[in-house]
């Protein structure tokens, strides 16, 4: 654990509110970006982050995370996805999430009966194993797209690649994931 994470967790445990400020300053940017790409709104993204900070404030004393940054990103992402669900009950929204969903159709069909029985934990572990097999760069690209919901242009910039190269890489990884899940018996 990084020293700053350790300090923040200790501060939260001591109910020192400045820890939240530091937490937001250190990791807020990527959380905001993820939430913004899910929700399409700066204000909603800010709300998701605030909510995540609030939940972290309440949860960390009882169960401090081993990876604070990933923890905050995961919280924000989950909250943003929940917010998006409630928003799209009345209005179908566009943006990155539908695009990402559509892309992932290549990996898992929503109509498959077999998938109903799939244990989420098993699938998550399988995806972890798949990600472990990938090269570091491919793994990062995949996570940036489907975990952090970054745009392909953003991913291209981070990796010094062209947009089309990122799309090509994502396409190949999705096919590889599909094959992997077939081999593992998930499909």
């Amino acid at each position: 654990m990084r020293i700053e994470d350790k300090i923040i967790i200790e501060q939260i445990a001591a109910r020192d509110e400045r820890a939240l400020e530091t937490l937001a300053a250190l990791y807020g940017e990527i959380c905001r970006r993820t939430a913004r790409n899910i929700l399409g709104s700066d204000a909603d993204a800010e709300e998701a982050l605030n909510d995540a900070l609030f939940r972290a404030w309440n949860a960390i004393p009882a169960s401090p995370p081993a990876h604070l940054q990933a923890y905050l990103i995961t919280l924000t992402r989950r909250i943003a996805l929940d917010m998006r669900k409630s928003q799209t009950r009345t209005k179908r929204g566009g943006g990155i999430v539908p695009a990402a969903l559509s892309e992932l159709e290549e990996c898992i069909s929503a109509d498959s009966d077999v998938e109903q029985a799939v244990d989420r934990t098993l699938l998550r572990d399988a995806i972890d194993r798949f990600l472990m097999q990938l090269s570091t760069e491919k793994r990062r690209i995949f996570i940036e797209r489907y975990t952090l919901f970054l745009r392909t242009t953003e991913i291209a910039e981070r990796h010094g690649m062209t947009d089309s190269a990122v799309n090509m890489a994502l396409s190949r990884i999705r096919k590889a994931l599909h094959t992997f899940l077939e081999e593992e018996g998930f499909l």
């Binding site: 996805l81 969903l101 992932l104 498959s112 799939v118 699938l123 972890d128 990600l131 996570i143 975990t147």
Partner: peptide, 25 residues
């Protein structure tokens, strides 16, 4: 399983992978 579930699972992967991706190369 719905695609939404898969998206959610993508948020539950090994945190080390997430931190590595955020940190970048």
């Amino acid at each position: 399983m719905k695609h939404d579930d898969l998206l959610e699972i993508m948020g539950e992967i090994d945190p080390q992978f997430i931190e590595d991706a955020v940190r970048g190369s």
